[in-house]
Simulated assay, not measured.
Amino acid sequence: MDQIDRIVTLWRRARPDLVFDSTEVIGRVVRLEYFITRRVLQDLSRYELNVGEFDVLAALRRHPPYFQLSPNQLQAMVLISSGALTNRINRLESRGLVSRAQADHDRRGVIVTLTDEGFKVVEDAVKYHLAAEAELAATLTAEERQQFAALLKKMLLAIED
């Protein structure tokens, strides 16, 4: 039995009139998220990054050849408020991992660019990140990973904006 089995068993005893099938799915997804985040943070700590900062660097890295995006584009990719994004950009800029400049096409606009140092950090960090993901998913066969990914995608497509 895992922790979710124990919780559901107790709930079924306490409230036999309720159905807990969804708890078995959602509870496990939430519990996995906890362990995944813990592992990712462990790997990112060597770069003094948190998950949100890594997300910003990775979003920029995925946009060659200039590795730059507007704050609005970044915000859409990392799904956070503009204030939270500004804080992340400030921290990354103070470390020399990104730079901000006025957009050529819009005097009011800003462009965030991955610096050479930021490029080096994200290039190295992404290798550890992918290795951690592979290790976490290693208990599943390749076919099971594909099935699981498809099921999670189905759930996300139903609830994403």
Rank of each mutant, 00 (worst) to 15 (best):
L44A: 06
L152Q: 07
L152Y: 10
K154D: 14
D104G: 09
D43P: 02
L92F: 03
K120L: 12
Q102P: 03
V19Y: 03
G109T: 05
T37W: 09
Q3A: 08
H105W: 13
T37C: 13
I80M: 15
A150H: 09
R31T: 14
R61H: 12
R95W: 03
G109E: 01
Q68C: 14
F148D: 10
D161H: 10
P71C: 05
R38N: 11
R28H: 10
Q147S: 12
S99M: 08
L60K: 02
G118W: 02
F20T: 11
R38F: 15
S81H: 04
A142L: 12
L44W: 10
L41H: 12
V8G: 00
Q68D: 07
G118F: 06
M155F: 14
A149T: 09
T141D: 02
A14T: 08
Y128R: 05
M155C: 08
V121F: 05
V122C: 11
R15E: 14
I4V: 12
L114V: 04
A138W: 01
L130Q: 10
I7Y: 01
F54H: 07
A59F: 00
S81K: 13
Y66P: 08
N50H: 06
K153N: 15
E144N: 02
L74R: 05
E53N: 01
I159M: 04
T23E: 11
R15S: 13
D21A: 15
K120D: 14
F148C: 09
R6L: 08
R95M: 07
Q42D: 15
L79P: 05
D2E: 03
D17R: 01
V126M: 04
A132H: 00
H105L: 09
A103L: 10
Y128W: 06
V122E: 03
D55R: 04
A149M: 09
Q3H: 02
V19E: 09
A150L: 11
I36E: 13
V30I: 15
S99F: 00
F54I: 10
Q75V: 03
L18Q: 07
S70P: 11
T9N: 06
T115S: 12
S81N: 13
E93N: 04
I89L: 14
L74Y: 08
Q147R: 11
Q147H: 08
L114M: 09
P65T: 14
L44R: 06
H63T: 13
D106L: 06
I159Y: 04
L32M: 13
T9K: 04
Q68R: 12
V112A: 07
A134T: 15
Q3F: 01
L32H: 14
G96T: 02
F119N: 14
V126D: 02
R61G: 04
E53Q: 13
A84S: 14
V30T: 08
V122D: 03
Y34K: 12
E144M: 03
A142M: 11
L41C: 13
V98F: 06
L130E: 07
V25E: 14
L18S: 03
L136K: 01
A59H: 00
T9I: 01
G27H: 03
E93A: 10
A131L: 11
T23C: 12
